[in-house]
Amino acid sequence: MRARILFAAAAAAVLALAQPGLALAEEEGDDPSTTVTFVVTSGALTLSVPVSAVLGSGAPGTSISAPIGPCTVVDDRALLSASWTVTASETDFSNGASTIPATDATYAVGSVTTTGVITVTTTNITLSNSAQTVVTGTGGVGDNTATWDPTVTVNVPPSAVGGLYTGTLTQSVA
């Protein structure tokens, strides 16, 4: 009886080792190996910007200037040589009765803080109704971020009429 139990156990062990998908050492000194796989997920390229900004006030012929709040690019695409470009454009400023052209304003990027691997280049611009490059990221590896707090300055023309002026700063990333 004991021999039958030992034989059955040995046969079960041989069957378990001979199953497809199991690695066996064929000769002494050969170590069996296991192939291990996994997936690194990737996400999107996004830009977050402040919803609104108040620059302050000033008289005709002066400049009104303030940081508008943090702008952040998040690149979760997990690429090996990622690049992206942020552009900015501005509508003309209006108080309902009078306008100040967008070209009377500037956008100064300031310092950029990054995480991950990315090389960032900045360009200060005179704003206009057309999109212009303000920040570029190149050589990105894996996930990375870049954050800056740009300063917008409006040179108020000497002929400006008093009132609350509003314009729309549009920033985008591609």
Rank of each mutant, 00 (worst) to 15 (best):
G69C: 08
A16K: 03
T138M: 07
T35H: 05
A174F: 11
N144Y: 00
S83L: 00
L55K: 14
R4F: 01
M1Q: 11
T34N: 12
G142L: 04
V14R: 07
T41I: 03
V51N: 12
G167W: 06
V109D: 05
T145H: 05
N95V: 03
S128I: 00
T99S: 14
A108S: 15
S83G: 11
L15A: 15
V51A: 15
I125R: 06
T37I: 05
T87A: 04
A10V: 06
S89M: 01
A53G: 06
N155G: 12
A9F: 04
W148T: 07
D149F: 06
Q171E: 09
P150T: 13
T136K: 11
N124F: 01
G21V: 00
A16T: 13
E28P: 07
V152T: 07
S48L: 06
C71E: 08
S130Q: 09
I125N: 04
T46C: 06
T126A: 06
S42T: 15
P150G: 13
A9M: 04
T46I: 00
V154P: 05
A59N: 11
T62F: 07
A8S: 15
F93G: 03
A12S: 15
T153V: 03
G163Y: 13
F7P: 03
S63R: 09
A16S: 14
T153F: 05
A12C: 12
G140W: 02
P70W: 05
V14W: 03
A105H: 11
V36C: 02
S111E: 10
T41D: 13
L47H: 13
L127A: 08
I5W: 02
L15Y: 06
G43C: 01
S81L: 08
E26N: 13
A160L: 14
R77T: 10
S33M: 05
L47N: 14
V156L: 07
T115Q: 08
A174I: 14
V152D: 04
G162S: 14
T126G: 07
F38A: 15
T147K: 00
S111D: 10
G96T: 12
T168V: 15
P20V: 02
E27T: 06
T136D: 07
N124V: 00
T145V: 02
T151G: 11
R77V: 00
T115W: 08
V156Q: 09
S128R: 01
A11F: 11
T145A: 03
S111T: 14
T122D: 02
S98G: 07
S159N: 10
N144H: 11
R4N: 12
I125E: 02
S94H: 02
G163I: 03
A18F: 00
A78W: 00
G167P: 04
A102L: 03
N124H: 01
V120G: 15
L80N: 14
S57R: 09
D31K: 15
V54N: 07
R4W: 01
A11W: 07
A131P: 03
P70H: 09
V14E: 02
S48F: 03
V117M: 02
G167T: 09
S65F: 00
G56M: 08
L80T: 14
M1S: 15
G61F: 10
M1W: 05
A131Y: 01
L169Y: 14
T145C: 08
G43I: 00
S172Y: 02
A13C: 06
S89N: 11
G96F: 08
V36L: 13
T115E: 08
T62L: 04
G58P: 06
P157T: 12
T72H: 07
P67Q: 14
F38H: 11
